[in-house]
């Protein structure tokens, strides 16, 4: 192209590009402001559901939780934040059964990787979004998640009462849930293995 024409057309393309940029910032000027005025808007503050801040163990109204003290979460935790201690108890029909004694989680060392929640076979733990976790004392960060006097939610308990409709519904529901969980767990593990393989290579 003729250098002079190139020079002139360069000026106009530059002007066009500059005006395009100005248009973008003009739109930005009138956009809704994203600033949260935090301590004042505490009541209306919306935290995303995906936000992970405190690990907790949901208890139902009978003070029962779903943790079987299997220890998978403890084994999966990358930095030893979870300590599960359990006792062996003998049930009425003479079988030995593992019962959760203490489920201790350390807020201070947790990296919120979510591996414990993903791998839990019985869906017993969750992350909530109470993000205001600042403490004056480090010992307050170490928390026992199972409430005093709580116990495992019994599955057989549902089968005993004479309610056939429930009976029919429950067992099918429960195994399905379990299967889902089990499917997820191996996948997560596989992913872990893959990533570690890559690192090794």
């Amino acid at each position: 192209m003729n250098p002079f024409i190139k020079y002139i057309s360069g000026i106009f393309t530059a002007l066009k590009a500059l005006i395009g940029g100005l248009r973008v910032t003009w739109r930005e000027l009138w956009r809704k402001k994203v600033t949260m005025q935090y301590p004042e808007n505490r009541e209306t503050l919306v935290i995303s559901d995906r936000w992970r801040s405190e690990l907790h163990m949901p208890h139902d109204e009978n003070n029962e939780h779903a943790c079987t003290a299997c220890g998978i979460c403890m084994n999966n935790c990358p930095n030893g934040t979870i300590k599960v201690t359990s006792n062996m108890e003998e049930t009425e029909d003479g079988k030995k059964k593992r019962v959760l004694d203490k489920y201790v989680w350390d807020y201070g060392t947790c990296t919120f990787c979510n591996l414990c929640v993903i791998t839990c076979p019985s869906d017993a733990i969750q992350f909530n979004n109470d993000f205001e976790g600042a403490m004056y004392d480090r010992s307050k960060l170490i928390r026992q998640l199972n409430k005093p006097g709580s116990k495992l939610r019994e599955k057989e308990k549902v089968e005993k009462p004479a309610a056939p409709a429930k009976e029919a519904a429950k067992p099918t529901e429960a195994p399905a849930k379990k299967e889902e969980k089990k499917e997820i767990a191996p996948e997560a593990k596989k992913a872990d293995e893959k990533s570690s393989d890559k690192e090794n290579k």
């Binding site: 910032t25 930005e28 000027l29 809704k32 402001k33 994203v34 600033t35 005025q37």
Partner: peptide, 10 residues
């Protein structure tokens, strides 16, 4: 601040 979707000094 308004150009950056902030509130600025308030």
């Amino acid at each position: 601040a308004f150009f950056q979707s902030r509130l600025g000094p308030n």
